[in-house]
Design a binder for these strands. Structure first.
Length: 649
RNA sequence: GCGCCCGUAGCUCAGUUGGAUAGAGCAACGGAUUUCUAAUCCGUAGGUCGAAGGUUCGAAUCCUUCCGGGCGUACCA
């Protein structure tokens, strides 16, 4: 039994006798924050009292008198201004725990009405190596898919690969002019990535060279603006607007200077390298020409389409090997290119329905309450990701029959999704839940988006390798009892687990500061801590030579005489709440938090309660069952997050 | 200018539709096991929840203003 749901349902029965709107009050029953307040607390008496203009403790007393929970709890207590505290009867908790230890699903019920979810995540661009920025989407999306599936929903994971955008023209241009045939034959993807970076750099160079003189010319004007604004502010120190204007002017100036510096850096990088400089000089129109390659590709140019057909499978294969390391298998990888044939129809329909109009040459949808345009066709006729995303929605709703579409994408794109969803609704897709599951940026220790010393983003591949390598050092220090092969295996799971867990344990909305120390930490709130707890349970079962199938079948009772045992049992019974909480607002960190608390309860139990040497045999059996259930919940919960476990470490 | 987000312990972060004395981890300090994995456990210390008002039985949470920071803002995705 799920105690929380059961208590809430009992509370609802009592509340219907006192109010017409019990639902809001039912939600106010939740797990207690502190042990001394019991196991659960209801905070609704105060709110009810306000409406009824009665003393809250009286209302609490009346509520208790109407509440039938005697079979589950000790008599509820009124505390403070009118809290109602519930403490489960220990025998009842023990009975339910015994049931849990035999339950294949560990108390997690299947949802009554499964929905069809489409989860769009990871979505890298092909031929650009994956970097830390792709980590969050990949890891969060995977965890959500697993949790939703476990709850009984139908889930289709979709990798909406960027295989059709502007970067492809750059690659084609690079391939045509700069390719190293030997390198390409030897390993195509790194060579394509090199070509992309090269073309990008040369394009930037020409842009920047053109921009620098006017930017420089503006400095004097900006400085003058600062001086006069500052003077005005100093002249009238009480005028806040003047002070603000001065500050804004200063800010503008410093941003301007920073812009020039960064442009200068890009410039210097090319000019200090004679090889690059001569390439740049030889390709003055590289930006324009690589855009043309993109346009040719989209227009069906045979040569470019042939190159595309050649490049994409190679790139997809490289991505695939990355996903294998995470244990991720996508149900679909329908890239942007897949929707290409649908794009003209989308724009046509928007025009017919008079939702789109031409503005500055571009075809735009304007959404009420938002001045920003949603550009579905550029002035040059090219479509944008807005168009592609609309086509994607059409496919997901009409063909895949989605009830809910989740987009696990960087929070910086929130405005895009706001416009996209509003447009989709106006197109008639109003029965589907569209949700931008946004997440914050991974920052470096300087609090800027993470970079290596050379200024590049850290590659995902090297991040994983380094984590595993570091895990190996720690494993070697701690686990001399393991064979070399086992140590390798443990290192992979510990290293990968560390990275995945660090990411998931943050609230997804927050930016977080990446640090190697945290990634590699093996104590405290980490994947390793959870994996270690799991391995310790396995150690007990192994040393005792326990046949767990037999143990579960035997029908032993659970005994909860000590605080550590009771706390652990209560925690195990909350697993189903933790899993379903993740699905409410798509927040995996609620599960990492639960698992850490569970592992922590187990560690205390492990310290206080001997298992194998426990007497009498009934107590030993009870503790063994608690161990077994703990292990299964840790394994299951970590698996839902995409993190593996080992029996020995 | 407009829009969105953020400001919680020395550091990194939780804090579920407003609830009891604001919680973890790391770092610091002090304890625990001749026992099933010490990658552990228990404890101490550390806070004006950016500031000021307001709403009410009750505010880190809701409202207003201000300060500080990030991001987005027309043809990149």
């Amino acid at each position: 039994m799920d105690f929380l749901s059961e208590l809430r349902s009992r509370l609802r029965s009592a509340l219907t006798l006192m109010t017409d709107t019990p639902d809001a009050y039912v939600e106010m029953l939740k797990p207690s924050q502190e042990v001394k307040f019991g196991d659960f607390q209801a905070n609704c008496a105060m709110s009810l009292a306000k409406l009824a203009r009665r003393p809250p403790r009286d209302v609490a007393a009346e509520l208790i008198s109407k509440l039938d929970v005697a079979d589950i709890c000790d008599p509820p207590e009124i505390a403070g201004p009118g809290f109602i505290n519930f403490r489960l009867k220990t025998e009842r908790l023990a009975d339910e725990t015994a049931r849990l230890t035999r339950d294949e699903r560990l108390g997690v019920a299947l949802v009554a009405t499964p929905r069809q979810y489409i989860v769009d995540f990871s979505s890298p661009n092909v031929a650009k190596p994956m970097h830390v920025g792709h980590l969050r989407s990949t890891v969060i999306g995977n965890a959500l898919c697993r949790v939703l599936r476990f709850l009984g929903h139908h889930v289709l994971s979709d990798n909406h690969v960027g295989d059709w955008g502007t970067q492809f023209g750059m690659i084609i241009y690079g391939y045509k002019h700069f390719r190293d045939d030997a390198a390409y034959r030897n390993n195509a993807v790194p060579e394509l990535a090199r070509l992309y970076r090269l073309v990008n750099q040369l394009t930037d160079y020409h842009t920047v060279v053109a921009e620098l003189p006017p930017l420089r010319a503006q400095i004097a004007a900006k400085e003058a603006a600062v001086a006069s604004a500052r003077q005005a502010a100093d002249f009238k120190p009480t005028d806040k607007d003047a002070a603000r204007a001065a500050k804004r002017a200063e800010q503008e100036l410093s941003e301007h200077i920073a812009g020039i510096e960064s442009a200068q850096t890009k410039c210097d990088l090319v000019e200090s390298n004679p090889g690059l400089k001569s390439l740049a000089d030889a390709h003055p129109r590289i930006g324009e020409l690589s855009r043309r390659e993109t346009a040719l590709l989209h227009a069906g140019n045979i040569e470019n389409k042939r190159l595309w057909d050649e490049f994409v499978p190679k790139c997809m294969q490289a991505l695939e090997s990355m996903y294998q390391r995470f244990g991720i298998v996508f149900d679909m990888s329908l890239g942007e290119s897949w929707y290409n044939p649908m794009l003209p129809g989308i724009v046509e329909e928007l025009k017919q329905k008079e939702m789109a109009r031409i503005s500055d040459g571009a075809t735009c949808v304007f959404v009420e309450g938002n001045p920003a345009p949603f550009i579905v066709q550029k002035a040059d006729g090219a479509f944008t990701y807005a168009t592609t995303d609309l086509a994607t929605i059409r496919h997901r709703v009409e063909t895949l029959h989605a009830d809910a579409c989740l987009y696990v994408v960087d929070s910086r794109q929130s405005e895009h999704f706001q416009l996209l969803f509003a447009t989709a609704k106006n197109l008639g897709y109003s029965q589907t839940e569209f949700r931008h599951v946004s997440f914050g940026t991974v920052l470096g220790e300087d609090r800027r988006p993470i970079k290596t010393r050379s200024g590049d983003s850290i590659g995902l591949e090297s991040l994983l390798d380094e984590a595993i390598q570091n895990a190996r050092k720690i494993v070697d220090e701690n686990s001399s009892h393991l064979s070399d092969a086992d140590r390798s295996n443990v290192s992979v799971l510990v290293g990968m687990g560390a990275i995945i867990y660090v990411d998931l344990h943050h609230n997804r909305d927050s930016d977080y500061v990446f640090s190697w120390d945290k990634m590699l930490a093996t104590s405290g709130d980490t994947a390793t801590y959870n994996q270690y707890a799991y391995a310790r349970v396995c150690g007990i079962l192994r040393k005792g030579g326990i046949d767990v199938a037999e143990l579960r079948r035997a029908g032993h009772a659970i005994q909860l005489a000590t605080p550590a045992e009771r706390a652990l049992a209560l925690q195990l019974n909350r697993f189903s709440n933790a899993v379903s909480d993740v699905a409410i607002d798509y927040r995996p960190n609620l599960l990492t938090q639960y698992l850490f608390e569970t592992a922590n309860c187990f560690a205390s139990f492990f310290n206080d309660c001997p298992v194998l040497s426990a007497e009498p045999p009934e107590l030993r059996a009870s503790r063994l069952l608690l161990c077994d259930a703990t292990a299964r919940i840790l394994k299951c919960g970590l698996d839902l997050l995409g993190i593996g476990v080992v029996q020995q470490m």
